Amino acid sequence: MKNYTLIVLLATFTGFAVNAQVVESGAQLQLIADHFKFTEGPAADAMGNVFFTDQPNNRIWKYGTDGTLSVFMEPAGRANGLYFDREGYLIACADEHYELWRIGMDKQVQKLAVNYKDSLFNGPNDVWVSPSGMIYFTDPYYQRDYWTRTSPKMHNRALYVYNDGRVTRLDSQFKQPNGIIGTPDGKFLYVADIGDSKIYRYAIQANGTLADKQLFASQGSDGMTIDAEGNIYLTGKGIDVYNPAGQKIEHIDIPANWTANVCFGGPNRDLLFITASEKVFILKMAVKATH
């Protein structure tokens, strides 16, 4: 399939107006498109354009601030979670061969990490880049139909950090780590153990290591994001919003079988971009993310 641009006609879901502390009053969920197989990994660049993956179809898409939708990259290493680093490169969990990639806007790929010690990763799933440039990623195990292997080489399903060519395992006490997000000031990291229905919060140390692991919420999550108020957005059956104290303050229904991930996009970072099964949506928010 060639790269092409599709002018998007937003379809408003009548009856899905959302009344929430974090959603703009009267805002309605808007469908961008629904012709994907399974959408994941939304990440916004410095201008607010959102890149996301359709992993089964091996594509990375771009939703522009002008409302256009286009294929950014194909094939795309079966990319799953995405995040932009401070230099404008797209960091991707390239699941096809269990790797962590750095992708330029010219689509040139640098393989940052392909193994831990002498073992292949299970399949990097989600990723967050700290303000200092350290790359944190989760490595669960989800059997893929495009793999020849049928079991993981590593027993541990763990959390890692990549920094300056080196991979360090930070925590392996998970059933199935998945979603990950950090605070914009780089002080705290949130990681979901979707296999154990828990969200943990860590304090990030100056050298990038983690301390003071605490249970933040007794709920799992596929993907996560954070707004400028410090509220954490969890995904799965719709979207649940927790304040920084770990109190659930809102639920947003999404008309899809599964809500995989979310991020803030748009020129003002006040559009919640939602990947949900074969669909993607946007929702105007009363809060925004930091640039």
Rank of each mutant, 00 (worst) to 15 (best):
N207Y: 14
A217E: 09
A260D: 08
F264V: 04
G220H: 04
T225L: 11
A211I: 04
G265R: 05
G208M: 10
Y233E: 15
I254C: 07
G236Q: 00
D253E: 14
W258Y: 15
P255F: 12
K213Y: 04
N268R: 09
G223F: 03
D212P: 03
L272D: 00
N231V: 07
I226K: 11
G223S: 00
A256N: 03
R269E: 01
T225S: 05
E229A: 11
N268Q: 15
Q219N: 15
L215E: 03
G246Q: 12
S221L: 02
K248A: 08
N243C: 11
A276W: 13
M224R: 06
E229Y: 04
G246I: 08
T235N: 04
N268T: 05
I249L: 07
G208W: 00
W258A: 14
Q214E: 15
Q247C: 01
N257G: 04
E250H: 05
A256I: 05
K237N: 11
A256G: 05
G223W: 08
D227C: 05
W258T: 13
T209G: 11
L234H: 09
T209V: 14
G246M: 15
L234K: 01
F264Q: 02
D270R: 01
Y233F: 05
A245V: 08
P255M: 01
E229L: 07
F264C: 10
I254H: 02
L272P: 05
G265K: 07
G236D: 07
A211M: 06
G220L: 01
Y233A: 06
G238I: 03
A228V: 09
G238V: 14
L272S: 05
I226R: 10
